[in-house]
Design a protein around this nucleic acid. Structure first.
Lengths: 211, 211
DNA sequence: TTGCCCCCCGACCGATCGGTCGGGTAGGTT
DNA sequence: AACCTACCCGACCGATCGGTCGGGGGGCAA
C-alpha cells in the first residue's frame, strides 16, 4: 500500500516485454524495441534486469505466478475429482481468455525448452519451480479421478499433456482460424462458446460418465 | 528416376533447416549455422533460396506436403465419420511420431502468425494453400460426424482447434515431461501407449458413444 | 577453343544484436 | 557541506545478422 498505483519502471518493462515476447518469441524481440516501448533507454533495462534471458524468465515467472494464484483457491482432494476438474477448468479458461498473451507465453515456455541459451540463472530456477507446482497439482487431480474410478484409466502424464494442448493451444492460436477457417473463432463474443466446448471436450475425453 | 538417391544440396539445406527451425524457431537460427551444418558456404544458400524467409516457407511447405500425402489416402465421405476419424488419427499420429521435427514445426507454423516478417513471397502462399487444404479436410470430417449424429453437436472450427492442440502439441513437447513430470513420456517405447491414449481422448471427446 | 550454365566460394556491406562504461541527476542522511 | 543510493542516459564495444558482389571451376555443346 506504500506504493500508489503508478506503474513502476520495472513493471512497465515487464508489461511491454510480456506482450512482445508473446507475439514473436525470445529471439524475435530486441532490447532496443523493448526499451523504446517502455519509454526508457536500453541501458536502463540492465539496471532492472541483469540480462535479456533473466528478463524473459522474469516475465514467464510473473505469468506463472498469476496463473498459480488463480488456480490456488480450488478445493482439495476431499471434493470429487470431477467437481475439482470443473472448477480448475473454469479458472484456467478464465485466465487464458482474459489476456491473450498468457496462453502464447505459456505455450512457448512449455514446448520450447531450448529457447533460452543460459540455464543456470536463478530466475529460470524460480520459474521452473512455479511451473512444476502447477503441473503437479493438475496431475494430482487426474490421479485422484483415476483412483476414484470417475476418470477413464488414463496415464496421468500423457493426459496432462493432452489437457495442456487442448486448453493452452486452443487460446494461443487465436486469430489464425479467422483466415484459414473462414470464420472468426476468437472474437470476444465467441469466447464463452469456446469455453464450453473445450470444457465439454475435456469432460467427455476424461470422464467415463458424468451425471 | 533420373536423379540417383544422392541428396542434392537443396535437399540437404532443407533437411538441416528443418531440424534447426524446429528446435529454435525462425529468428533463433542464423544462416551461418545452417550453411555450416549443410557443409556449404552461406552465399550458396542464396543460390538455392532467394531469402531466409523463403527458405523457412519452403521448409514448412515440404513438411505440410509430406503430411498431406500421408493423410490423402483416407476414405471419402461414403465411410462413416467415426471410421474416417480413426484412420486419419492413425495416419496423423504416425507422421508425428516418426520425426519429432514435424510436430514442432507445425506447432510453430500454426500459432505463430507473426513469425515471418514478409508476407508477399510466393513460397508463403504455396505453404498456406497446402495448410488450408489439410485443415479443410479435417474440418469436413468433423462436420460429417456432426451431421451423422455420431459426433456430439460441436462447432467444427473450435473442435478442429482442440484436435490440433491435443495431437500436435502432445508430440511437440516431447521431453519436457521427462524433467518436470518425473517420468519419460516420449521414449520410443512409450510412443505406442501415447498414441492410444491420444486416440482414446479424441474418441471420447468427440463421439457420444462408440459401441 | 570458345562460350555458356550451374554450382560454389571468400570478401565485404550496412544494420542490428546483447552488453558495458562513465557520467549525470534527484532525493535522502549525516 | 559531503556523501550515498537509486535511477537514467548517450556513446561505444565486439560480434553477428541477412544479403550482395565478383569471380572461380567443371561440364557440355558448338
Amino acid at each position: 500500500m506504500t506504493a500508489p498505483p503508478s506503474p513502476s519502471s520495472r513493471d512497465k518493462i515487464l508489461d511491454v516485454a510480456e506482450a512482445r515476447f508473446a507475439q514473436r518469441g525470445y529471439s524475435g524481440v530486441g532490447l532496443r524495441e523493448l526499451a523504446e516501448a517502455a519509454e526508457l533507454s536500453k541501458s536502463s533495462l540492465f539496471h532492472h534486469f541483469p540480462s535479456k534471458a533473466a528478463l524473459y524468465c522474469s516475465v514467464l515467472d510473473r505469468v506463472l505466478q498469476r496463473l498459480a494464484a488463480r488456480l490456488a483457491p480450488a478445493p482439495g482432494p476431499q471434493t470429487t475429482a470431477a467437481a475439482r476438474l470443473e472448477i480448475l477448468l473454469d479458472a484456467l479458461l478464465d485466465v487464458l481468455a482474459e489476456q491473450a498473451t498468457t496462453s502464447r507465453l505459456l505455450l512457448r515456455a512449455l514446448f520450447e525448452d531450448d529457447d533460452l541459451p543460459e540455464e543456470g540463472l536463478p530466475e529460470a530456477d524460480a520459474m521452473n519451480a512455479t511451473l512444476t507446482g502447477i503441473l503437479a497439482a493438475v496431475r494430482g487431480l487426474i490421479e485422484q479421478g483415476v483412483a476414484e474410478g470417475s476418470f477413464r484409466p488414463v496415464s496421468p502424464a500423457h493426459t496432462l499433456q493432452s489437457l495442456i494442448g487442448i486448453t493452452i493451444y486452443h487460446f494461443a492460436s487465436g486469430d489464425f482460424g479467422e483466415e484459414l477457417l473462414g470464420q472468426p473463432i476468437f472474437s470476444a463474443a465467441a469466447v464463452q462458446e469456446r469455453r464450453e466446448e473445450v470444457k465439454a471436450f475435456v469432460r467427455h475425453g476424461l470422464l467415463i460418465r458424468d451425471a
